[in-house]
Simulated assay, not measured.
Amino acid sequence: METMRTEPVADVQPPLPSADVDSKVLSQNSSNTTFLKNAGIPTSTSKSQSAGEEVLHQELSSEKKGSAILHKQVEKHKKKTEAAEEALTRTQRQYEELKEQQDESNVILMKFLNLNTPGTFSQP
């Protein structure tokens, strides 16, 4: 029986981590890298990921711009609403003041009519 001898081998690359080995083998044998992505193992299709990431970055940028525009519109509508509420409050206050004046005028008018109506006695 022959015994195996272990001798150092010159110019040997350090062993790859198992995730890298799995990634290379699986990506060579299958075009579907969903398993690798779900397992958190990077795949060698970095160019398609970069293009996909670029598209996502563009979409995100568009969403941010749209959000900023909507935020400005909301702020503009808030200011208009506040102005309208202030105007409504002023109008309600004026209405209440006019109502009080009308009530006072009616009291004065009733007193005046009672004084000038013949056959009624006025009280001092």
Rank of each mutant, 00 (worst) to 15 (best):
M1L: 10
T3S: 13
M4P: 09
V9Q: 02
D11T: 05
P14V: 00
A19V: 06
D20E: 10
D22R: 10
V25A: 03
V25W: 04
Q28I: 08
N32D: 04
T33R: 08
F35P: 00
N38L: 11
I41L: 05
I41E: 02
I41H: 00
P42F: 03
P42C: 02
T45L: 09
S46P: 06
S48V: 09
S48T: 10
Q49V: 08
A51C: 06
A51W: 01
G52A: 01
G52M: 00
E54I: 08
Q58N: 08
L60I: 08
S61D: 14
S62H: 13
E63Q: 15
S67A: 09
L70S: 15
L70P: 02
K72T: 10
E75A: 08
K78Q: 15
K79W: 00
K80C: 01
T81G: 02
A83S: 09
A83R: 01
A84W: 01
E86D: 08
R90C: 04
T91A: 11
Q92V: 11
R93C: 01
Q94W: 06
N106K: 10
N106Q: 13
K111W: 02
K111E: 10
L113M: 12
L115Q: 13
T117Q: 06
G119T: 04
T120G: 01
T120M: 14
S122D: 09
